[in-house]
Design a protein around this nucleic acid. Structure first.
Lengths: 182, 182
DNA sequence: CGCGGAAGTCAACGCTTGATGGCCTACGCT
DNA sequence: AGCGTAGGCCATCAAGCGTTGACTTCCGCG
């Protein structure tokens, strides 16, 4: 079958996101990605140059943390948690890719650090002074959000993996609230 | 140089723990482990049979959750957190290995689920009825503990990575407290 | 002293991986 | 109809992997 270059590129990218999210960087082979996209492995190289570059494209995304000042102050924890889950379940797996690969790829870990420093900490700083500096509060928030994502989506620990997101938000909301506005 | 079989075995195991903890399962090659132990790769096979078996031996450990009923009830959260960090920093990296590899090795993820169900949830059940069943409470506790370990020891997010453990315990203690005894 | 077995090395295997470059083929335009 | 080119395939490469088995070296015991 014959497709336009754009279509093929999108097909490769979709397959890459699936494989990277499911298997991590090392085990998601170029061959497997190509097979899932229904083309020859050499096409992947043609369109993306290298596996590393394909990964960078597949994992690219924006967390888009909302302005927390628009939320009722006593609910910022729950609001942030709800946004996180909405983001997680509506993207093409980029967040899962980041979490799965950050563990072995120092470059990806650095990207998570950057997202936290550039996209999350400033929004927390907007909330005004709290129990600690915004960087520390952002770190604690990240520890709870990434922890729950790890347990729920990667380790698949019951019963966390099958809970409604609303229920999870109800659990971690107060913890985040304390981290955010002390 | 010539050593006893026991010495060599220990040297291999120590090197394996280092490499597995630092690089994860796939990237910690038998060749690298052997080089770090100062011997030929074939010796690793001789003493451990296979890489998979070496990994199983290297990652074997017991979380040894203490009896939480012996703690003042209003401090069980902090006590559990303190135990976790003590355990993390005093073993030979087994916990780091588990966390680093569970992300790609389904078998290791299953082991973490088992540890939680068999070693953690029962101790929580000992505390008596709470805001939810012990499994759920254990899951929430795990999400915070593993999350902070991930951010601190694997992703190395500042400032979490350089904080004193006492300070981290002070932050997450109340969250754990709420998960444990509602 | 000599010899058996334990400790260790060496070279090679079969396989998979990311990457390369030449070849084919079908489509769209004139 | 014919041709250029973009989309795609195939064969192949070098490197690295886990694993194997035969070979060498050294120590301790009779």
């Amino acid at each position: 079958m014959r497709r336009s270059a754009e279509e093929t590129k999108r097909a490769i990218l979709a397959a890459a996101r699936e494989r990277f999210a499911a298997d991590g960087y090392d085990r998601a082979t170029v061959r497997a990605i190509a097979a899932a996209a229904g083309i020859d492995p050499s096409m992947v190289m043609r369109y993306f140059g290298s596996k590393e570059n394909l990964f960078a494209t597949a994992a690219d995304f924006d967390l888009a943390v909302p302005d927390l000042r628009r939320e009722p102050r006593e609910r910022v924890g729950a609001a942030l948690a709800a946004h996180f889950f909405r983001r997680w379940e509506h993207d093409d797996g980029q967040l899962r890719i980041l979490l799965r690969t950050a563990v072995t790829e120092e470059e990806v870990a650095a990207r998570i650090r950057a997202i936290l420093a550039d996209q999350v900490a400033p929004r927390i700083a907007d909330l005004g002074p709290g129990a600690a500096d915004p960087g520390t509060r952002a770190g604690m928030v990240a520890s709870q959000l990434l922890g729950v994502a790890l347990c729920r989506y990667v380790l698949r620990l019951p019963p966390l993996d099958t809970m409604d997101t609303e229920e999870v938000v109800a659990w971690i909301g107060p913890a985040l609230q304390r981290y955010l506005v002390g």
